[in-house]
């Protein structure tokens, strides 16, 4: 049974954004959109989460934070970049403090467009992430069988 499809727990981190996407991410949890229908819980704790939603781009100070959160999440995990800023830096690309989109720091699996991304498209991004989770778990399992017991082997980052 594809359990990851049924029970994805998300964690949301706000990189350097304008807040527009953040409040839309929160709006996804609330009655009109209600992502709990899909079994999604906003855990707020990287160690419990499967999906990392990042809004906003990465700057000097948030880079180590994002990296730490990503490393704290147990495998399998998926990163969803929400909004244009998170995808490429967006309107703030030319700012002096920009390092670029989220993929400048950690591997991103799904890009959600929009400025600000609408709740519908955020939900769509999360749902696309669900299948990836299961695939990643299987990949890891077969890989582990292939290369003997090294329990700390990481998923290769593209």
């Amino acid at each position: 049974m594809n359990l990851f499809r049924k029970s994805p727990w998300i964690i949301h981190y706000d990189g350097a954004s304008c807040n527009g996407c953040d409040i839309e991410v929160l709006a996804c949890l609330t009655p009109r959109y209600d992502v709990e229908r899909l079994g999604i819980i906003n855990t707020g704790n990287p160690k419990h989460a499967d999906i990392l939603l990042i809004t906003g781009y990465i700057n000097e100070q948030s880079q180590p934070v994002v990296r730490t959160i990503y490393e704290q999440m147990p495998d399998p995990k998926v990163v969803v970049a929400v909004g244009i800023c998170a995808s490429s830096g967006g309107i703030f690309r030319d700012c002096y403090n920009t390092k670029g989109g989220v993929d400048s720091t950690i591997p991103v699996d799904i890009y959600v467009p929009g400025c600000a991304a609408r709740p519908e498209s955020i939900m769509d991004g999360v749902v696309q992430a669900l299948d990836l989770l299961e695939r990643k778990r299987k990949e890891k399992k077969t890989r582990r069988r292939a290369i003997a017991p090294t329990p700390t082997s990481e998923v290769p980052t593209p």
Binding site: M1, S7, E36, R37, P74, D75, K140
Partner: peptide
């Protein structure tokens, strides 16, 4: 809200067992 499926806590539990240690 509508809320999750009835078996959601069981899915959650089984999923957690599949996660990395």
């Amino acid at each position: 809200r509508i809320g999750p499926p009835l078996l959601q806590p069981i899915y959650d539990l089984l999923k957690l067992f599949q996660k990395e240690r």
